[in-house]
Amino acid sequence: MLRRSTLCFLCVVIILTGCSRRSSADPPPIVTATPTVAPVFQERPTASPFVPPPTRTPLPTRPPVTATTVGDDDRSQLQVDPVYRDALSTGWSIANSALLTSVTLTETQVVALGRYAIAVTPSESTGILFFTITPESGIELRRDQVAALRLRLSGGNLPIANDAMTIAVVGSNRFPYWTPNDDSVTLSGRVTNSTEPLFPETRLYFLGVNRAIAPGEWAEIYVWLDDLIYEPEYTYVTGFYLKTSNDLVPQYYVDQIEWLVRAESSANP
């Protein structure tokens, strides 16, 4: 009987001791924190798109109606002398073009301004679309009065790489019009019978076209004569040509061709 009483007493002591410890313990702290996202899951900043710096010759989808003004005082006041606007101007010819599969002066589907443009398909060899002043024209374009040639160029539904075409301006020291076998212009240090072109053939990327002309786009091209390198000295501008081949440019279109002439002179007397 005594043993049972002792055992009951010990059980009561153990129970009371356990309750005492539990009640005396400090409650666990309640922690409140703002949820965060680990850096690896954080959203990356959006990169700013690269915008190429502007060039002297932009590539507008619509060419301007009037001549653009350039910063230099010498180029800010220029008169426009048209070569082609829906038709060839009087006194101009493309009869001296060579190695073209087809050419039409009345293209209606791909036009920059007006009703018509010129559509050209060069041959597999290098084709030349050659604009020349005719002997009976009465036109006199003096080299020291002509500032630039300006034209609009497109590949239609195809691109034109900026190294796929060259443009050249030609002249004479004897006649104000183009004539074959004119040997009045020479280049210092050049062998007379050299097969290299006498007048510089300049690729589009040297004319400020800093990328390919995209499909459906019209590029406004400027050929500033004073910027041409290796140009011989001559008195009269007698023509110009666009040169490419079918494997580089299967077809192209030209529109709104004109000379920019210094204001104090008149291209047509």
Rank of each mutant, 00 (worst) to 15 (best):
S5G: 04
C8K: 12
T17A: 04
T17H: 03
S20L: 06
R22Q: 06
S23E: 07
A25C: 12
D26V: 15
I30E: 05
I30L: 11
A33V: 01
P35Y: 11
V37S: 14
Q42E: 07
E43D: 10
E43A: 08
S48F: 11
P49F: 13
V51H: 10
P53V: 08
R56L: 06
L59A: 08
T61E: 06
P64H: 12
V65D: 09
T66N: 13
A67I: 04
D73P: 01
D74P: 00
R75W: 14
L78S: 05
Q79M: 05
Q79G: 10
Q79I: 12
V80K: 01
D81I: 02
P82S: 05
Y84D: 03
D86L: 15
T104D: 07
L105F: 10
L105D: 05
T106W: 14
Q109F: 15
V111P: 12
L113I: 05
L113V: 10
G114I: 11
R115E: 10
Y116A: 11
I118H: 02
S123F: 02
S123E: 03
T126D: 00
L129P: 12
T132V: 15
E136N: 14
S137T: 07
V146D: 01
L149E: 01
L151N: 01
R152A: 14
G155V: 02
L158N: 08
I160V: 07
N162V: 10
A164D: 14
I167M: 05
I167Y: 11
A168S: 00
V169C: 05
V169K: 01
G171W: 03
F175E: 10
T179N: 11
D182M: 07
S184W: 06
T186C: 02
S188Y: 07
R190P: 00
E196D: 14
F199I: 12
R203D: 05
L204Q: 03
L207G: 05
N210Y: 12
R211G: 08
A212Q: 00
I213V: 15
E217I: 03
I221Y: 06
L228V: 09
L228H: 10
Y230P: 00
T235C: 04
V237R: 06
G239N: 02
Y253R: 04
I257M: 15
E258F: 09
L260E: 11
A263S: 14
S265F: 12
S266Q: 07
N268K: 03
